[in-house]
Amino acid sequence: MAQIDTRGMSCPQPVLMTKKALEVCSIEVTVLVDSKTAKSNVERYLNLTGYSINTIELDTNTFKISAKK
């Protein structure tokens, strides 16, 4: 499983980092994001590419997105 921390990264890097992580480990990935924009962008990308996702809010505007194929 790949874990990536995209906190503090600006658009579109959270999605790009997710994409790159999936190239290495395509089964399962966990993405940390710290804005609602990044959250919805990463979730949309994972949905588009056929992953089932589960997001939990760790703190105000900080989310952990878990995705599985």
Binding site: A2, I4, D5, M9, M17, K20, A21, V24
Partner: peptide, 9 residues
């Protein structure tokens, strides 16, 4: 980005 390794920090 390696399997099981935390990346991005």
């Amino acid at each position: 980005v390696k399997g099981g390794v935390k990346v991005g920090a």
